[in-house]
Design a protein around this nucleic acid. Sequence first.
DNA 1: GGTTGCATGTAAATGGTTACATGATTGT
DNA 2: ACAATCATGTAACCATTTACATGCAACC
Lengths: 179, 179
Amino acid sequence: MDVKTLCLGVLSRADASGYEIKKAFEEGPFRHFHQASFGSIYPALNALSAEGLVEVRALAQDKRPDKKIYSLAPKGRNALLAALMTNPAPDAVRSDFLFILSFAQYLPPARVEQLINARIAWYREMLTRMEGCTSEDPAGARFVRGIGIAVYRAAADYLESHRDELLAAIGDGDLQVAE
Amino acid sequence: MDVKTLCLGVLSRADASGYEIKKAFEEGPFRHFHQASFGSIYPALNALSAEGLVEVRALAQDKRPDKKIYSLAPKGRNALLAALMTNPAPDAVRSDFLFILSFAQYLPPARVEQLINARIAWYREMLTRMEGCTSEDPAGARFVRGIGIAVYRAAADYLESHRDELLAAIGDGDLQVAE
DNA sequence: GGTTGCATGTAAATGGTTACATGATTGT
DNA sequence: ACAATCATGTAACCATTTACATGCAACC
């Protein structure tokens, strides 16, 4: 699923500028399972526009570049639907956090503790935000948010309830630098 | 965290060939949070070898290319430790599954149901494998496996207990192709 | 007879990110 | 003064994947 399709998805929810689409990937509901930067969003939007999948209207603003508001064209809606009907590629998770923790026994316990605590705090903050979200989203978005909440809560709970066990297991042995 | 560091991590657990490292990312414990293909592993191994971070010994085999067994050199161990002490980049999840589900209301319920059922089956299979893993792993690996089990279980349970609710919400409205 | 597994490697193509360029406004 | 927010866009760079090249053995 490329950035073009992702943009169509965002636009299906509401008209938006490139800048606003970027925010959807930074702060919006998509942030948890997809990401895109300006360098990919702006060219994608231009391509979509050239293909007639989206429409643009320029919104003049004082002392700022015109804001280009994109909206989904009927052809774009069909393209999105077609993409939604393809088999999803397997999920890809890249977590340096889990990779590092896999080698906890080589690390100073203080570092492991700090890593885990920071992660718990992050999950709890996300949970507060996601649970406080009382907007009447469409059914799909509500369902996906529910998965996110369930998963983040499970992860935070596990970290909290097993942290001390891990810390005890790796003891207070120092960082073992060979040589 | 690049493929070179990932390879050092795999080699810290046991000596391995490029082919075996690939398997660690396909079937091993790392598969859930990092991935790498031959096209990146083999060059990485050559670079690590040139830098003196790993050592190679060729294992002759009949009717097959020599198997090159790599092992972590002291310099490599230090490089790994240094990498483990850096701040982990934020987790990056790419899930077409969740993206597609976000738009469940546009899709035929049968498709949504099939998508969810397949995913539940996948989680349950992974859980069986992970729970059946009774090896005496180091503390870090055990802890990380515990997180994986907790998270997959939470996801599978949520999907199972909210599937019918979602299906009911999207009704039996047909695929809405505009125009 | 075709696929899968073993085993290594390269080159081209991909699909992005990062950094740069520009610039006013608002907050600290 | 400095950073952040708003706003768009390009180009260089990057890491990685995909496809190719090679070839035998075992299984179905």
